[in-house]
Simulated assay, not measured.
Amino acid sequence: MTELKRTDAAPTLEQAFADASCPMRVKGTSPEPPRVDALHLMKLSLIRVVGGPFQFDRDARTIGDHDPEQLLVLSVEQGTVRLSQGEVTSRIGAGRVAICRTGRPFAITPEAECAIRIGLFPRSLIRLPDSRISHLFADLAANEKPSERMLAVLFDEVLQHERVEASAPATYYIDAFLDLVAAHFAEMLQPGPDDVTGSRRSFLLIQTREFIEQRLWDPDLDPQVIADHHHISLRYLHKLFASIGLTVSGWIRATRLERCRRDLANPALASLKISAIGARWGIPNATVLSRLFHEHYGMTPSQYRAAVRNGIEPELQELDEFPAT
C-alpha cells in the first residue's frame, strides 16, 4: 500500500523545499537551524518550520526554466512574517494566510522566531483563471476568513499523522486542501459590506455554483436549466459568470472534468470503468469524455489513470480560461 511520504530524519529547510520541486535560497541569522517537518503527499507538499530569524526566497536564478508552476500557501502559526512578491508586500500575523506563485521571484522573511506552515501544489489544480486571481497573490484579506482557520486545522491534523495505511485517504486530504484554497480565493473576491448590489450578485453566484455542484450527475444540466431554477434570465446568468471571468458552460465542463480526474486518481475506485466515472459526473459518452479530458489536461483519462497507478505524477497542462464551447 502507498503511504504518505515523510522524511525519516528531520530534513533541512533546503531539502524540504527541494523535495517539493521548489528549490529555495535559505539565509539564517540564528545559530540554531529551524526545526522542519515535511510531508509529501502525491502532488501536495506540507512543511512546518519553527525557528528563526531566517529568510528564504526564490530569485530569477533559483527559478529554473522547467520548474513546475506551483502555488505556495503560507499559514502563520506564531509570530509575524513578511511575504513579498512583485510590488506587493504583506505583513502576516498569527492565524492569517497568504498565497504566492513559485514561478515568480518572492521572499518570505519572519520578523523574529516564528512557526509557519507551507503548502505547495501545482497551479493547474486550482480551476480559477489568472485574470481573476492574479491581483490576490501575496496579498492579505482585510479580515480573517473562515478558510484561514480551516486551513490551519487541516495543516496540523495531516502533519501529525505518522502513517496513513492507504493512499485513498491521501486523495481526500488533497481534495480538502485544494477546496479550502479555492474557498479562500472566493472569500477574497467577495465584495465589501457596503457594496449591496455586489453582495447580492455574489450570493447568487454562490447559489448557482452550488446548484451546479449538486447536479453534475445530470447530463442535461445546461445554462437554461440553471437560469430557470434560480428564476433569472439566461442573459443575466451569463453576465453573472462573465463578471468573474468565466462562462457557465465552461465552468460546468471544468468542474465535471476535475471530478473525473479526482476519481481516476483515487485507488479506492480503481476497479470502476472510465465510462462509469464519466457517467457519475454527467459525461456518459466515453468518447466525449476522452476528447474533453485530453483538451483540458493534455492527456486521455486512460493515460492519466495509468500514470497515477505507476506512481508517476503527470504534469497537467494549465488552462487560463474555461471556453464555453
Rank of each mutant, 00 (worst) to 15 (best):
T80S: 13
F185T: 10
W217L: 12
G51E: 10
E313L: 12
N143A: 01
R149F: 00
R201D: 09
I116F: 05
L46P: 05
F106L: 12
P11N: 02
L246Q: 14
K27H: 09
K43R: 13
R253H: 06
S21Y: 08
M42H: 08
D37K: 14
T80I: 13
R262G: 05
H184G: 03
T208F: 00
F121K: 03
F106S: 11
A112M: 09
L237G: 01
L46S: 06
S202C: 07
G51C: 12
R123P: 02
A254P: 02
A268Q: 13
R235Q: 14
A16E: 04
E321I: 10
S275F: 00
G198K: 05
G28S: 15
D156W: 00
I63H: 10
A152L: 03
Y236K: 08
P110K: 05
I283K: 08
T247F: 06
G119C: 09
G93P: 11
P301D: 13
L154T: 04
S90C: 11
N266V: 04
A166W: 02
L221P: 12
A182H: 05
P323T: 09
T12G: 15
S90G: 11
H135K: 13
F241P: 03
H135Y: 03
L128M: 15
F121H: 13
I133T: 14
M42C: 10
V248A: 02
G282I: 00
A176Y: 05
L71R: 07
L128A: 10
A10Y: 05
V73C: 14
T255D: 08
L154F: 05
F17S: 04
T287Y: 01
F56C: 11
L205Q: 04
A182E: 15
F106W: 15
S45M: 12
S233L: 11
V164L: 03
L159W: 02
M188N: 02
A183K: 12
S167G: 07
I277Q: 04
E210M: 01
R35S: 15
E69S: 15
A168S: 11
L71H: 14
Q224D: 12
A286K: 06
P68W: 10
R280N: 11
E32A: 13
L292K: 06
E321D: 14
V248K: 07
L151D: 08
R262H: 04
I63A: 13
V81K: 10
H184I: 02
V164M: 09
G311I: 02
V308Q: 08
P314E: 06
L292C: 03
D37R: 15
I283G: 04
L74P: 03
F241A: 02
R200D: 04
A166Y: 03
F211W: 06
P33K: 15
L180G: 03
D67S: 06
E113W: 01
D194W: 09
E187D: 00
E165N: 05
R132Y: 01
M150R: 15
S45G: 10
K273A: 14
D222Y: 01
L72S: 10
L189K: 06
A306L: 02
D228I: 01
L71T: 02
F56Y: 12
A9H: 12
A168H: 09
L272T: 14
H294G: 07
G51N: 11
